[in-house]
Design a protein around this nucleic acid. Structure first.
Lengths: 197, 197
DNA sequence: ATCGAATGTTGTCATGAGCAACATAGTAGC
DNA sequence: GCTACTATGTTGCTCATGACAACATTCGAT
């Protein structure tokens, strides 16, 4: 623990401060504008200080992506836990996912592009975990007889893809944000119709 | 026409050469690695030459995105033209779109992120045109009675989103590319089931 | 043939990433 | 307490790039 309170001259938790500032910057100005040096300036440390916590810029971005998945996961789990009915679970997951994805557009993009590069296994794993949540929902739905039997992976991925796609085109301004709720609702409805026995 | 043969010293069509080189670079090394100076070097012009054709780096990226939409559009139209049956049209569009999207992953990302910034109206329009193709297919399907009535926009967007989402997660390595065809096929099947009268 | 518009070139600046050498602050062992 | 040792920050470089300005060359219309 820090000695007194304010700035122990070793800042205390630069890493966290960097991540916080980075997320704000990401949200407000986009990835491209995110400069390690800016963060350092904003926080009040020297331009090389971040390097002690993140090997390079990409490492910071990867860390952001990782926490992004963690938050998304938590939100999804919470939503799923408070819905018992199967269609309700699908709806809840859809709403929470698309909401997160549109409210954290830049972060989401990071989450889905940080992984291209080899070595970002933790991120890929995080993404798979999230996807796994949906697949589980599907599997339960099949077990309950609400869905036709079949590979829950396939079906879950398609559902996931639809949500991701909706978020993607809304974030891309191809479609106005006002349509979001309606689209999600249409998608869920069609999904339930298309996948029932 | 050039004076002799090789390099008219005014290169002839730097713009095209830049776009070509840029697309290769994009495909091979990603957007982040795409440097105007590299392109200039590769082509053999001075580092400031590109500026005559693209006001800044982003302008080049925007142009790339625009040609991307044009190519995608052409591919989609061709596919749609050679399919008469309604389900076939949906299948064809789905296959062509996802194929293009996965074979031009970096370009696609560009196409969907260049538009965030204000002023990229031409790109947004291009995206809307592409989306319009799908909406048309849906409208026709409804007219043929193959789909339940409803707002073709809503339905078309959802279909589009699903395809875009599938491409997105494949490109993001969240699911292996081998699954692509199966996913597309599942998605189309479910769509047709979910949206029929 | 001449003049103006396109198109390229050289040179410069500001900025940011990455690295290394050094400084300081906590911490563990004695 | 004192002395390493380690973690964390700082200063000061190098390098690459984007953006810009001033200048050069070529092309095309009159």
């Amino acid at each position: 623990m820090p000695t007194t309170s304010e700035r122990p001259y070793h800042h205390g938790n630069l890493r966290t401060a960097l991540l916080d500032a980075a997320e704000r910057g990401l949200r407000e100005h986009g990835v491209d504008q995110l400069a390690l040096r800016d963060l350092a300036r904003e926080i009040g440390v020297s331009h090389a200080a971040p390097r002690r916590h993140f090997a390079d810029r990409q490492a910071l971005l990867d860390a952001l992506a990782e926490t992004g998945f963690a938050r998304l996961d938590a939100a999804l789990r919470a939503a799923l836990d408070s819905a018992d009915d199967f269609p309700d679970r699908v709806r809840a997951a859809a709403v929470v996912y698309t909401r997160f994805a549109t409210e954290n557009a830049a972060l989401l993009e990071l989450m889905y592009t940080s992984k291209h590069r080899p070595g970002a296994t933790r991120i890929t794993e995080a993404a798979e975990t999230t996807l796994g949540l949906l697949v589980e929902v599907i599997a339960q739905g099949q077990a309950e007889g609400a869905l036709q039997a079949g590979d829950p992976e396939q079906v879950g991925i398609v559902l996931f893809a639809t949500l991701q796609g909706i978020a993607s085109i809304v974030n891309g301004n191809i479609v106005p944000p006002e349509l979001l709720d309606g689209l999600v609702s249409t998608a869920v409805q069609q999904f339930l119709r298309g996948a029932r026995p």
